[in-house]
Write a protein that binds this DNA or RNA. Structure first.
Length: 481
RNA sequence: GGCGACGUCGCCAAGUGGCAAGGCAAGGGUCUGCAAAACCCUCACCAUGGGUUCGAUUCCCAUCGUCGCCUCCA
């Protein structure tokens, strides 16, 4: 078995073969840290999180690099995003960077996103960027004008190979406004001369300035992963111009292929439209987490394929929450019953069924990281598990452990939608004792056919968020709030 | 205008050249004192029109529609 991936560069599904059989090198475009992260970031980084998790689960060692853009990313007004944030909040630019870098990691941690192995900052790699720019000028791919340096897209024959654009077609685009000093409208900045008020500035062979946005990714990816590396990821909205420019710079500078596999995620819309500051419809991760659990958000994101767009709506997320709960209930149940399970081999015949499900899960994930298909398999597995649990058959420890292991592997380790430990109330022992006492009282009432009283106990507990669930011979409970 | 993606059951969403997973919702049933939970059953001719093929939802073309990008964006 091998992993197949859809490579945007070749527009087809290919067998994934890393350059080095044991180490996968992977770069994903990270955030510009000038504001809090929103739910669209969650979609992108949860998607790649699952890809990394699955590669590791499959036995690969992965070096995962994701940059932090803290300089050079200009708004269309020509203003640096970081500086804008600094002015807004009346603090130092590097305070802006620090504040939102921390917030970014906090949000990702909350969502259970595994941290990248390296999170390089653009501002910490100015010398390397200057060096690549110098190389590009030397090789004739770039030119300097009045303290700024531009990449000449006409010199790089492959420009447009990722996004499928051709320069001559772009020339017709009415929206491309030519900047006077550039040779070609599509030429892009490698280095920009800093105006006096631009306080993010560094000395360079071309004077005081700051790097263009795209160059950091080319530089940091090749620095930490090599001139050619395996996977480059990011959101599809960055395919042009950002990713295209990355390729041009890196391949022009190193004369080597840049990334071998390009995996791009679909965009997230909110109630049908893309989030944007100007529309004011930005949902921050921290706000979404007030309403939904991290697992629910992950489940929702993973319920459609990473390469597809997804629309975040209350209706869709709540349906996801219920779908997830359906899986979580028996998992809780199993872990609970595991503690008192006998050392018998009761239910051992179920092990071969589990093997089939495991194979199906591997098959789904091997096929271009098809998480939604994997969720479908987990759901089917859950039906079988529920049937087994309800059968009245006495199940041995081994059986419970095997079921739990499968859920832990795919629901936990790979998809991150099943917690390792279910959160328990701080005074869980007391709570459990009290509820069980009431369950006993209700059982006595029922035995005495005093249903008015037994229903009263059940209803009042339900009102408090304690749901009683009767099964053969015993009653369990779970919190619904 | 150009580039790209997409249009599958009421909603969300996989998928395949040979009679379409799963979840949510809905209806019926089993279990239950009644419920809840669970389980079982029911529920789609895959936007439209052509073409290729023995056969297409799956390939090709066109049309309609939605979205993204071309300016900052994960």
């Amino acid at each position: 078995m091998s992993i197949q991936v859809y490579n945007v560069l070749t527009r087809q599904k290919e067998e994934f073969k890393p350059l080095n059989p044991d180490l996968v090198t992977m770069y994903v475009c990270g955030p510009t840290v000038y504001d809090y992260s929103h739910i669209g970031h969650a979609k992108t980084y949860v998607s790649f999180d699952v890809i990394v998790r699955y590669l590791r689960f499959s036995g690969y060692r992965v070096r995962y690099v994701q940059n932090i853009t803290d300089v050079g990313h200009l708004l269309d007004t020509g203003e640096d995003r970081i500086l804008k944030g600094a002015r807004r909040e009346r603090i130092e630019p590097m305070e802006v960077v620090e504040r939102y870098t921390r917030a970014y990691f906090a949000a990702m941690d909350a969502l259970g996103v595994t941290r990248p192995d390296i999170s390089p900052r653009a501002s910490a790699h100015i010398p390397e960027q200057i060096e690549m720019i110098r190389q590009l000028i030397e090789d004739g791919y770039a030119y300097e004008i009045d303290g700024s340096v531009y990449f000449s897209v006409e010199k790089f024959a492959d420009y447009g190979k990722l996004s499928g654009r051709r320069l001559e077609e772009e020339a017709d685009g009415a929206r491309v406004t030519a900047r006077d000093e550039k040779h070609h409208p599509a030429d892009f900045a490698l280095w920009k001369k800093a105006e006096p008020e631009h306080i993010l500035r560094w000395p360079s062979p071309w004077g005081i300035g700051f790097p263009g946005w795209h160059i950091e990714c080319s530089v940091m990816a090749t620095k930490y992963l090599g001139e050619t590396f395996d996977i480059h990821g990011g959101g599809i909205d960055n395919i042009f111009p950002h990713n295209e420019c990355e390729i041009a710079q890196a391949e022009a500078a190193t004369h080597q292929p840049f990334a071998r596999y390009w995996l791009l995620t679909g965009s997230l819309t909110l109630d049908g439209v893309k989030m944007s500051k100007s529309l004011g419809n930005v949902l921050l991760i921290q706000d979404a987490l007030k309403q939904y659990s991290p697992e629910t958000i992950r489940y929702f994101i993973l319920s459609s394929h990473y390469s597809n767009p997804i629309d975040f709506s209350q209706e869709a997320v709540e349906a996801a929450a219920k779908g997830l709960e359906r899986i979580l209930v028996p998992v809780r149940n199993i872990r609970d019953r595991l503690r008192t399970a006998p050392d018998s081999d009761g239910g051992a015949e179920f092990l071969s069924t589990l093997d089939q499900y495991r194979a199906a899960l591997v098959g789904a994930m091997d096929d271009n990281f098809n998480a939604p298909a994997a969720l479908g398999v987990l759901s089917q597995l859950t039906t079988d598990v529920n049937t087994l649990l309800n059968s009245g058959q006495v199940l041995g420890r081994k059986t419970f452990e095997a079921i739990d292991k499968l859920y832990r592997d795919f629901g936990g380790q790979v998809l991150g939608i099943i917690p390792d430990e279910f959160k328990q109330e701080s005074n869980y022992e007391v709570l459990d004792g009290l509820v069980r006492m009431l369950i006993d009282m209700r059982a006595e009432a029922r035995a005495a056919k005093d249903f008015k009283r037994s229903d009263q106990i059940r209803d009042r507990l339900a009102a408090l968020g304690v749901q009683l669930e009767d099964s053969r011979g015993s009653t369990g409970w779970r919190l619904t709030k």
